[in-house]
Computed example of a mutant assay.
Amino acid sequence: MTSDEWFDEIAARLAPQGVVAGKVFGKRALKADSKAFACLKGDLLAFRLGAGSPEHTAALAVPGAELFLPADNDRPFKDWVAVPVAAADSWPRWADAALAALHG
């Protein structure tokens, strides 16, 4: 599956929980309560997991994962982890965790 297909599948699965697809940073994003918690950038899906949380630490341990650079500059978003499509089978897990973190 492509990164867009994975994104669409996750969006459809989370729609009953009030999640909608939208845009943030000019990229496709998943939002709840008008707040983005996931953002697709090429073959990376970034999740807002909260710096220092167990989920954030675990996501960063995924091979190829990195802090999210939405604008390709040197200022990563420390609460966000970008996970590569090579690990897309873990994307639903991180989407669930990011949604839960958003709702506190």
Score class of each variant (00 low, 15 high):
1 M>Y: 10
2 T>C: 01
4 D>C: 08
4 D>H: 07
4 D>W: 03
5 E>D: 14
6 W>Y: 12
6 W>I: 14
7 F>Y: 13
7 F>S: 00
7 F>R: 09
7 F>Q: 06
8 D>G: 07
8 D>Q: 12
9 E>Q: 15
11 A>W: 04
12 A>V: 06
12 A>P: 04
12 A>W: 03
13 R>L: 04
15 A>Y: 07
15 A>P: 02
15 A>K: 12
16 P>L: 12
19 V>P: 06
20 V>Y: 04
20 V>I: 12
21 A>C: 07
21 A>N: 07
21 A>Q: 13
23 K>V: 10
23 K>P: 07
24 V>D: 12
25 F>C: 01
25 F>M: 01
26 G>Q: 03
26 G>P: 02
26 G>R: 04
27 K>P: 08
29 A>G: 14
30 L>H: 05
30 L>S: 06
30 L>P: 00
31 K>F: 11
32 A>V: 06
32 A>T: 03
34 S>C: 09
35 K>E: 13
35 K>S: 12
36 A>Y: 07
36 A>M: 15
37 F>P: 03
37 F>T: 03
39 C>A: 14
39 C>D: 11
40 L>A: 05
40 L>Q: 13
41 K>C: 00
42 G>H: 07
42 G>C: 07
43 D>N: 12
43 D>K: 00
45 L>T: 11
45 L>N: 11
45 L>F: 08
46 A>W: 08
46 A>D: 15
46 A>Q: 10
47 F>K: 03
47 F>G: 01
47 F>P: 05
49 L>R: 06
50 G>S: 04
51 A>K: 13
51 A>D: 13
52 G>Y: 04
52 G>H: 03
52 G>D: 09
53 S>D: 11
54 P>E: 11
54 P>H: 04
54 P>F: 00
55 E>R: 08
55 E>T: 04
55 E>L: 03
56 H>K: 03
56 H>Q: 03
57 T>A: 14
60 L>Y: 00
61 A>K: 02
61 A>Y: 01
62 V>G: 01
62 V>P: 00
64 G>V: 13
65 A>K: 06
67 L>F: 11
67 L>G: 08
67 L>M: 13
68 F>W: 06
70 P>C: 03
70 P>V: 09
70 P>Q: 04
71 A>L: 15
74 D>Q: 15
75 R>D: 15
75 R>Y: 10
76 P>L: 05
78 K>P: 01
79 D>I: 06
80 W>H: 05
81 V>R: 02
83 V>P: 01
84 P>G: 00
84 P>A: 08
84 P>M: 01
85 V>C: 02
86 A>V: 05
87 A>G: 07
88 A>W: 02
88 A>K: 14
89 D>N: 14
89 D>L: 07
89 D>I: 11
90 S>W: 00
90 S>G: 09
91 W>I: 01
92 P>C: 09
92 P>S: 07
92 P>E: 09
93 R>P: 02
93 R>A: 06
93 R>L: 12
93 R>I: 05
94 W>G: 08
94 W>Y: 14
94 W>K: 02
95 A>H: 10
95 A>K: 05
95 A>Q: 10
96 D>F: 09
97 A>Y: 09
98 A>W: 00
98 A>F: 02
99 L>Y: 05
99 L>M: 01
99 L>W: 07
100 A>K: 14
100 A>R: 15
101 A>G: 02
101 A>V: 10
101 A>C: 04
103 H>N: 14
103 H>Y: 12
104 G>W: 09
